[in-house]
Amino acid sequence: MTGQNTITVIIHSGLIKSSRGKGQKKFEMPIREDYRIEDVVRDLDIQDEKPSLLYGLNGETADDKDLLRPGDTVHLMLPISGG
């Protein structure tokens, strides 16, 4: 799915199986008005991971309250364990 009202979501290991991304690492999602990163987390059903979740937005650090625009790329990550 590609279109004017979509964002690209990249989810990293540890989240792939538990999310509604159907096992995909990178996919597009439609967005609504006033759609924020926390809405992505909710729509992918990974709220349980939220205390440890890290967010990226267009190559920069991000907050779950950040507002999304069409064409944005959102990263959802868990920290790696051995750094």
């Binding site: 990249i10 990293h12 890290l54 990226g56 990263h75 990550m77 868990l78 920290p79």
Partner: peptide, 23 residues
Amino acid sequence: FEESDVYGLGLYGTAEVTIYQDK
């Protein structure tokens, strides 16, 4: 890199792990 699991290290550094360790 963008789809790898070290992407977060680039954005947040090794300090990305503090809360994860705590939890």
